[in-house]
């Protein structure tokens, strides 16, 4: 029941917004077509401004991923994380999550297929993916679009959020399931 509801809700939410906003606009005497075009015109420049920031970040992350250098970090962090009660199988996901959205999605799918989606590891990996976001992507795109090169403490705060999300997922899953 709940499953069906959320499924339908995520199908309907965007069409409903695309229907309601122009309709309300029309009844409030907005020239909806002209307004849409005026807003959309900004999209192009913004996306182009992001490009150099995205190239810089994606090149570094991709080299890091493909070289297998993540394995050293996994080995290095494993004793610390295991001490905190983190299962060894989830350590790569912890490192990948803030760096690459597709990478983390790939690792999660692998865990779900290997251990089963209804196993404890599968549940934890799902919760991690559902409750955190790709910090470096957001940082690159949002600050890139307005030309910010000094993000100050926001990198630290973003990563802290990821860590809380990761450890929290493990703790909550052991409590709930």
């Amino acid at each position: 029941m709940f499953s069906l509801l959320t499924e339908q809700l995520s199908l309907w939410v965007i069409p409903i917004i695309l229907l309601l906003v122009p309709m309300i606009g029309y009844f409030r005497h907005v020239n909806v077509y002209e307004a849409f075009v005026e807003g959309a015109a900004e999209g192009f420049h913004t996306a182009i401004r992001i490009m150099p920031f995205l190239v810089a970040m994606m090149v570094a992350i991709n080299i890091f991923r493909l070289s297998g250098a993540m394995d050293i970090w996994v080995e290095g962090l494993k004793p610390v994380l295991e001490f905190c009660g983190v299962p060894a199988e989830l350590v790569p996901l912890a490192i990948m999550r803030p760096l690459s959205g597709t990478g983390a999605l790939g690792l999660t799918t692998e865990i779900l297929n290997t251990y089963g989606p209804d196993s404890m590891l599968g549940r934890i990996a799902s919760t991690v993916l559902g409750s955190t976001d790709t910090t470096f992507y957001i940082l690159t795109v949002y600050f890139g679009a307005i030309g910010i090169s000094k993000p100050r403490y926001s990198v630290f705060v973003g990563l802290l959020g990821d860590l809380v999300g990761f450890l929290g997922s493990i703790y909550i899953c052991y409590q709930l399931f």
Partner: peptide, 11 residues
């Protein structure tokens, strides 16, 4: 970007 910024302008 164009799609959502357009919708946002109407809103």
């Amino acid at each position: 970007m164009c799609l959502w910024l357009g919708i946002m302008k109407i809103a």
